[in-house]
Structure formats: structure tokens, C-alpha cells
């Protein structure tokens, strides 16, 4: 085993990249949950975004169009959830699950014929970590603009929730929809908008995986990242900056286990591969006592007549 092969700065960049899809999805879901809605369909919206982004960028040759399509695809799918839960007042847990099941199937259907194709390259910039020497080539870490966009989005959501009037209304709707309704706020409209935002973010996160991080399309490639994003919101106690911290932590675990696999540690790859999921469970257990940031109305249906 050769741990010295792992360069710390390279590791840091890899963690940033690994955390980005998670961060997009988690920040989106955080806004949704702050409005009092629990959307368990993150995984479905992510994978739909992943394939929509992939298909459009392959067909148009533009990764930017792909990202746009991914956000659109995620949002359209989340609109179905919004219709179910806000208009038809269906159970949010069941609706979210159906969104995930439907999204996984839909993405597999769209994704036929896209397997084994390389998407158009996304512009990245290399950070030279170590100069080329006689023994080895230069070490270059690749980062891209979306890594920073995700962090900027976290900051924007934080500022929106904390300082803006709209953010205050959104939180009011999440804490007590009856009170917000009595004050004249359009509870359903606000929640639908929040759900759409969450869907677009999840779609972007999915596209980040299929267009930039992997970049390739395989069925079910999000592999539970959407669910980890949901866990991350709980872990973050519904606070944007803590979601960022959590995303880095999970990204770190993931990168570390991949690096350990590559370095040939004496643990079977399957057991190392469990690490992100097991860490998620442990994090959930640790955080489950503190739910102070949880919106009071989360998961409860609202109808103006009640």
C-alpha cells in the first residue's frame, strides 16, 4: 500500500468535485423542506436531470444547453410532484417515492442508445499541483465553474432565507402554513415554486455527474446520491452552510474510499464502497437528536379550507 501516492491538494480538488452534485441537490431540497414540503423524489429528479442533460448536450454539442435541459428536466418532474402533493393533496412520502421510481424508469428509457457515448467536453481549468519532474508527469487537478457555482448557490440560498422578505415568507409557510395563509400569503403557489427550484437544482446535480464527473451515461448512475442529499439536509439541520460542510465531508469520504481502492488497500472494494452509505447512517444517528432547524409544518398537507 502506498499512501504517499495521494497528493493532499489533489485530494482537496477531488473532494470539491465529488461534493458538487450532492451540494446542488441538497441545497435545492433544503429550500423545498424550508417551505414545509418533503420531496423524497430527489434521486428520481437527479437521474432525470442526468439523462436530460446528457442527451441534449450530445445532440446539441453544447454542455451549457445540457445543463439548462437538466435543470428543466428536473423541474418538470418536480412539477408532477407539486401537482400530486399541492393540488391533489396526495401523501408526500408516497408521492416522492413514486417520483423516484418513475424517474429511474424514465431515465433508463430515455438513456437507451446513449450508453458508451462521450458527451461534449465541459470546459475545465487545470490547477497545477506539482511540476513535471524527471520521474513523473505534472500533477494537474481539474476544476470547473460549477464547483464554484454550487458554493455560490449555497451562499445565495443562505442570504435569501436569512435576509430577504421572500425568504422570510417561505420560512413562514414552512413553519405554519395556516398562519401564513391567514396573513394572505399564497401557500400553495409558494410551495410549488420551492418544489420547482428544488427540482431544477437536483437536475443540475444529476447532470454534473453525467456530464462532468464521470462523464458518461449508465443506468442508475446517481447510485443513491439523491438519497444522501436528503440525509444531508437533516445532517445540516436545515442550514445552508452546514449543508456545504456536510457535502464536503461526504465528498471526502467518497474520494478517500476511491483513493484507498486505487492505492490497493487490503480491504475488498465492496466494503470500501459501503463507506458513503454507512457514514450517512452514522451522521443521521448523530444528528437525529437535534432537529431545531426543522420546519414545523414539514410533510403536512395544506388546504385553504381547513
Amino acid at each position: 500500500m502506498d499512501l504517499s501516492a495521494i497528493n493532499p491538494f489533489l485530494l482537496l480538488c477531488a473532494i470539491l468535485v465529488s461534493a458538487t452534485p450532492l451540494l446542488f441537490a441538497a441545497v435545492g431540497e433544503l429550500v423545498v423542506e424550508k417551505s414545509g414540503v418533503l420531496n423524497l423524489g430527489v434521486e428520481g429528479m437527479m437521474i432525470t436531470g442526468a439523462i436530460c442533460g446528457f442527451a441534449i448536450s450530445v445532440n446539441t454539442g453544447s454542455p451549457w444547453m445540457g445543463l439548462l435541459a437538466a435543470a428543466g428536466g428536473g423541474a418538470v418532474l418536480s412539477l408532477l410532484f407539486a401537482l400530486l402533493t399541492q393540488v391533489a393533496m396526495a401523501n408526500q412520502v408516497a408521492s416522492g417515492l413514486s417520483l423516484t421510481l418513475f424517474g429511474l424508469g424514465l431515465s433508463a428509457l430515455i438513456g437507451q442508445g446513449y450508453q458508451g457515448i462521450k458527451p461534449p467536453e465541459f470546459p475545465t481549468f487545470g490547477v497545477v499541483v506539482a511540476e513535471a519532474t524527471a520521474e513523473r508527469a505534472a500533477l494537474v487537478a481539474r476544476l470547473d465553474i460549477l464547483v464554484f457555482a454550487a458554493i455560490a448557490l449555497t451562499a445565495a440560498v443562505w442570504a435569501f432565507l436569512k435576509y430577504s422578505r421572500a425568504g422570510l415568507i417561505l420560512r413562514a409557510v414552512g413553519e405554519s402554513h395556516d398562519a401564513a395563509h391567514a396573513l394572505g400569503y399564497k401557500v400553495v403557489r409558494i410551495r410549488v415554486l420551492a418544489i420547482l427550484f428544488g427540482g431544477a437544482c437536483a437536475g443540475l446535480g444529476g447532470a454534473y455527474i453525467s456530464l462532468i464527473r464521470v462523464p458518461q451515461w449508465t443506468e442508475g448512475m446517481t447510485a443513491g446520491i439523491g438519497w444522501i442529499a436528503l440525509a444531508l439536509v437533516v445532517f445540516a439541520n436545515w442550514k445552508p452552510w452546514r449543508a456545504l460542510l456536510g457535502a464536503w465531508l461526504f465528498g471526502g469520504v467518497n474520494v478517500l474510499q476511491l483513493n484507498l481502492q486505487a492505492a490497493g488497500v487490503d480491504i475488498p472494494a465492496e466494503y470500501l464502497g459501503m463507506a458513503p452509505y454507512v457514514i450517512t447512517i452514522i451522521a443521521l444517528v448523530i444528528m437525529s437528536s437535534d432537529r431545531s432547524g426543522a420546519p414545523a409544518s414539514i410533510g403536512r398537507p395544506f388546504h385553504a379550507s381547513s
Binding site: S98, F102, L109
Partner: peptide, 11 residues
């Protein structure tokens, strides 16, 4: 995958 979509639609 079409059947998977079909089952999802049902729910």
C-alpha cells in the same frame, strides 16, 4: 425500461 416507467406511472 418502458415497463418500469409504466409501473411508476401506475403509482
Amino acid at each position: 425500461a418502458a415497463i418500469q416507467v409504466f409501473q411508476g406511472m401506475l403509482l
